[in-house]
């Protein structure tokens, strides 16, 4: 593999991992439930990106399939939780 490509992949991987760490902290201190759910969704999307980058770096095509199943399950999970929150009514306390 070309050296420039390898360097780009490694740099992109490092940046994405850093972004996930930032997102975890921000989700932890989120101001309300929907905000946190959005943060969790964002972490899922970034995880998919990390897995795609890993599969390119290690030349293991199977990892892409794993990434995409995570993406599909993440969408379903977020949708189900959002519907649950929408049906529950107003939040108790200062959410």
């Amino acid at each position: 593999m070309n050296a420039a490509l390898q360097f780009t992949l490694q740099a992109a991987l490092a940046i994405h991992v850093l972004l996930i760490a930032v997102c975890v902290v921000r989700t932890w201190r989120g101001e309300n439930v929907v905000d946190r759910l959005l943060g969790a969704d964002l972490i899922g999307a970034l995880t998919v990106a990390v897995l795609v980058l890993l599969s390119l770096l290690r030349a293991t095509p199977m990892t892409i399939d794993i990434a995409l199943s995570i993406a599909a399950l993440g969408v379903i999970g977020t949708l189900a939780l959002a519907k649950h929150l929408a049906g529950r009514g107003r939040p108790e306390g200062g959410a």
Partner: peptide, 16 residues
């Protein structure tokens, strides 16, 4: 877009 709308709708119905 479906997840974006579901989250926005949840926020609206929760009174945020």
């Amino acid at each position: 877009p479906a997840t974006s709308h579901a989250l926005a709708s949840a926020a609206y119905r929760m009174g945020l």
